[in-house]
Design a protein around this nucleic acid. Sequence first.
DNA 1: TCGGTAATGGTAACGATTATCATTTGCAAT
DNA 2: ATTGCAAATGATAATCGTTACCATTACCGA
Lengths: 141, 141
Amino acid sequence: MDQNRELKKAGLKVTHPRMLILDILQDPAHQHICADTVYKLLLEAKTDIGLATVYRVLNQFDDAGIVERHHFEGGKSVFELSNKNHHDHLVCLKCGKVIEFEDDIIEQCQKEIAVKNNMDLTHHSLYLYGECKDGCNENIA
Amino acid sequence: MDQNRELKKAGLKVTHPRMLILDILQDPAHQHICADTVYKLLLEAKTDIGLATVYRVLNQFDDAGIVERHHFEGGKSVFELSNKNHHDHLVCLKCGKVIEFEDDIIEQCQKEIAVKNNMDLTHHSLYLYGECKDGCNENIA
DNA sequence: TCGGTAATGGTAACGATTATCATTTGCAAT
DNA sequence: ATTGCAAATGATAATCGTTACCATTACCGA
């Protein structure tokens, strides 16, 4: 069991809810997922995990660095596994599609801006919003 | 009256609450202000404008393009007058200070990324978070 | 297997924001 | 100036995402 080790490494006890939530996060179909959707998926899977636990576990995963939290427009947090390279996001406001991208030049500029303004940079959030030119199904995910 | 024209141009009736809120937004001391703070200032000014009206008016100003809405970390919206050049924000997580900056290179990169991914860019949000190296009073505004 | 601590689920509570609705106000036409 | 009516307002209930609380349950080392 791989999740097993992942949880222990983070100092978290291996419990049923945490395993199931990690499963969902690891499913490529569920990138950038919100707490509510995780909860719905757990319900559909006929488990009886409470919404409070979903929020708690996602927060713990965030604290442990297992997931990253994002604030896209809309007011709710979305999470993604943090086992990939740093990247930013391009979000389609029509269909909800999320494209990940990396841009070294932007990263470099940000560092310079922080230095210029006498700040220690801890993190940043960059979201580009737009509309797919084609292949957009108009359904917000 | 300057506000008068500003409101009419936006197709908004000139009312007491809207004038007062516009006053507050135009005060350089109140850049990046949240709805709650606007309401508190109105209370201190011995007016009897309701919180609902504050939210309503800020939304109308946003729709009319009079203000811009930002989502800094912390979950609440902050507003600033949009009568200045486009810029992004650098936020100190210790003292709450907000520094505005412009970076043409970053802007250019963003456009290229959108093109590369076949998206029409409508807007973006870029926030840099960090800590002042000095002169930071540790009080969240 | 047992025991204690940590984790859980249900639900109440919370903060930010919006909806509802009866009352008041701006303002165009008189 | 006066009137009429749609638009705006204020009080408050309701909503949404999230957290707090607390009695019960589940991990896991001894």
